[in-house]
Design a protein around this nucleic acid. Structure first.
Lengths: 253, 253
DNA sequence: CAGTGGTCTAGACCACCGC
DNA sequence: CGGTGGTCTAGACCACTGG
């Protein structure tokens, strides 16, 4: 019951490798079929009985495989309905770090203003983080997010090409307020999980003026690496916001 | 497979309540025997087969119950060795938020200096957080933690009485650098999990001088509620440290 | 080697959902 | 109602740990 998350070769062997459990191999096999698009996020897999019969395996064994994928966040099971491929992240998750609130208390979705968009070569760190070869091209975005006209978050985003080619030319006025659903719709890239690294710093004069704060004002900085269904990092993002509005809750065990 | 964490009455019924699964009831039952001290942290439970026979249940069902308690962090299973009650938190977990490092890179355990110890009445918030009746007594500690003689963290700790009575009189010179193992040894209180809330603020002059920083220096503040095996909150703690040394990593899914 | 947990099977029956 | 996942059983066999 401790199959590695990394047991995800793009093409699993036809048989469980020696030392690997049957359900572990089954899970990897199903995982590959999902990341290759056989079952799209939101759709249902065949029923347990059908999958078990297809793979010539007992029901309990198949259920162990599905339980693995549920634990990895790839599937969601609903009693009486079916087994579904999980939808990607919504895109409003950055607000969970900040306690911006509208007057009536509900946070709501922030508006998005793209301040800049450039095609350029990836730095060494960026190529490394995105798993690109040295000298690859990336799309860079600067973005300001506002709640009810009040600027609150400043973002710097780096996306790998050619996956996000479609965003390099499309009309900025037609962009959504939330990027992750747009990544999925326009580029077929599902953001499945992310790693956030939090720290504190001080705003430069330029950053401060965009956020309508004073130069040198304390800010919280969130460095995010976002991953798709196959586990590849497909977005690097740095978000800045007022440190005094920052609040985050964590569970330790 | 979604038994609530809160299915933990001190004394479970003799039979699974209607609508509750057998393994869910079994898990709650075993959980109660653990929190009541029948199996102390670090010790092994009887073997699967023995427990299954004792409860008149099939092996698979018992294993489901154990899997639940493993998922809740109460048990650890080791192939070929046995099933063990998990040890409590080590006590050095606060350092994971900060990137203090000694010269050779290894963080090490910080030294602990108790600056103050008072017996007093709990405030309304404290009584609420610790589940105490209004007007109950608490033990309050102020504490400075240092790495290689360099002050780095300032802590304010509130503990409920009479559970921590033994700490109110014991010789401060004999205290450990880590409190959680000492809680367990001296008071029999096992810290099993904690909830941390992170925020940002500015140091008062008094706080700053203790940390050898300037008054008004930016600081990260971690408000922690720590819970024992039975899920009762038994410690409230506020930790302050240099905001620019603060760094935290989170996973989003 | 004996004792532990891990895997797998084949089947029965229950609980939930949506038509 | 038919189809889905959830629970439970009884048993066989494997893999790991420690003496």
């Amino acid at each position: 019951m401790d199959e590695s998350i990394f047991s995800d070769p793009a093409f699993p062997a036809d048989q469980p490798s020696p030392g690997q459990s049957r359900y572990g191999w089954l899970a990897a096999s199903l995982r590959a079929r999902i990341t290759q698009g056989e079952w799209v996020p939101g759709t249902a897999l065949p029923a347990e009985a059908a999958l078990a019969k297809e793979h010539g395996v007992a029901l309990g064994t198949l259920r162990q495989a599905l339980a693995l994928l549920v634990a990895q966040g790839l599937l969601v099971r609903q009693h009486g309905r079916g087994t579904f491929v999980r939808e990607g992240l919504g895109g409003a998750s950055m607000l969970r770090f900040f306690r911006f609130a509208t007057e009536d208390g509900a946070p709501g979705t922030p508006q998005s203003h793209i301040l800049g968009r450039q095609l350029r070569l990836a730095s060494a760190d960026e190529a490394d983080g995105l798993g690109l070869p040295a000298g690859a091209s990336v799309l860079q975005l600067q973005r300001l997010r506002s709640l009810q006209g009040q600027p609150c978050l400043l973002e710097h985003i780096v996306l790998p090409l050619p996956l996000f080619e479609a965003l390099a030319q499309s009309d900025l006025a037609a962009w959504d307020d939330l990027l992750y659903p747009m990544y999925q719709r326009v580029c077929g890239a599902t953001i499945h999980r992310a790693e956030d690294s939090l720290g504190f710093g001080l705003l430069t004069a330029e950053q401060a003026s965009l956020l309508r704060l004073d130069a040198g004002h304390p800010c919280a900085q969130v460095d995010r690496r976002a991953f798709d269904l196959a586990g590849r990092c497909v977005e690097l993002r740095t978000t800045l916001g007022d440190a005094f509005a920052f609040r985050y809750t964590a569970h330790v065990r």
